[in-house]
């Protein structure tokens, strides 16, 4: 059992390391010269198969590997952009709704109810419809409207721990409430949970970004993403992901972003599950 668990942890760490290395590579912007030189006469929608100069071939007048690495980096940026408002608003709402804070508590609870009442994708569509929005703004909005997920979990945790003797003791010894919440409740008792939610949100944001790009929603310039790669590869050029007889070479422009997207989201969701499990184990040991 223990060996299985450590193998799983090792795999997850390795996956995360590969993803982060790709992101780092994308953000340095360094690629071999030969990869960057694409024959100028090449038709835009044509995919040319792998060669010595271009390890994964050329598509859309760009080296496919470069596009893939840049898209990986774009997915990381998208996740981060959605994550910040998610963590900020989620923690704030969670704390306010978990503490007996009178008006602030009522306000936080109603905000969670209202945010939960609307389907997230529909809100994003409405937002683009109304404001012709930037993709990054949409991701921020996605982070904000997903905040109730974290807030509800934190509300439950604070509510549970508030009844514990050691929290009573902290209050009795005069620790200010923000110290109790920050140090004793959030950091030492909920950090696994927050980490799990962070990974889950990151995965969802990457998926959302890919979906929005695929649907061509959100304005952007010189943007590369897995969603756009898929869009071009499947609809614009008429290539499809599953095609019989299967030919890896022919389907690579569509298969590569799909594979990247699926593996990264699966990796992050697994990490989220792992931390959630750790949290349950930890709380089990405590109570």
């Amino acid at each position: 059992m223990k060996r299985n668990a450590s193998r799983k942890t090792g795999l997850l760490t390795a996956g995360l390391a590969v993803y982060l290395l790709l992101v780092l590579w994308g953000s340095t912007g360094w690629f071999p010269k030969s990869w960057q030189q694409v024959p100028s006469r090449m038709p835009i929608y044509q995919y040319s198969p792998p060669s010595r100069e271009h390890p994964l071939g050329v598509f859309f007048q760009q080296d496919l590997l470069i596009t893939f690495v840049r898209s990986t980096q774009a997915s990381f940026v998208a996740g981060t952009i959605a994550l910040l408002p998610f963590l900020a608003l989620g923690t704030l709402l969670g704390i306010a709704s978990g503490l007996p804070a009178g008006f602030a508590q009522a306000l936080a609870n109603r905000t969670i109810d209202v945010l939960n009442a609307f389907p997230r994708f529909v809100v994003l569509l409405l937002y683009t419809g109304l404001f012709a929005a930037n993709l990054y703004h949409m991701l921020m909005l996605y982070g904000l409207i997903s905040a109730p997920k974290l807030a509800e979990l934190l509300r439950g945790r604070i509510d549970q721990l508030r009844r514990e003797d050691f929290i009573d003791s902290c209050v009795a010894l005069g620790l200010p409430w923000w110290v109790i919440v920050r140090r004793h409740i959030l950091w030492h008792h909920s950090r696994h949970l927050i980490l799990a939610q962070t990974f889950a949100m990151f995965a969802m944001a990457i998926f959302m970004e890919a979906s929005l790009s695929y649907l061509n929603l959100g304005t952007r310039e010189h943007y590369q993403s897995w969603g756009l790669m898929l869009n071009y590869a499947t609809s614009v050029s008429g290539l499809s992901l599953f095609r019989f007889p299967l030919s890896a070479q022919f389907n690579l422009p569509a298969a590569l972003p799909a594979l990247g997207l699926l593996s990264v989201t699966l990796l992050l969701v697994s990490l989220s599950r792992y931390w959630e499990q750790q949290d349950r184990l930890k709380m089990g040991r405590m109570f």
Binding site: E164, D165, F166, D168, S169, C170, V171, A172, L173, G174, L175, H184, H188, H189, K282, M286
Partner: peptide, 23 residues
């Protein structure tokens, strides 16, 4: 509030439970 933990201290029942188990 100005008194708790400064001028007045209270030790609650069952010392084990009043200590944070993860710290």
């Amino acid at each position: 509030k100005p008194l708790l933990g400064r001028r007045i201290a209270i030790i609650l029942q069952d010392a084990h439970k009043t200590l944070n188990p993860f710290l």
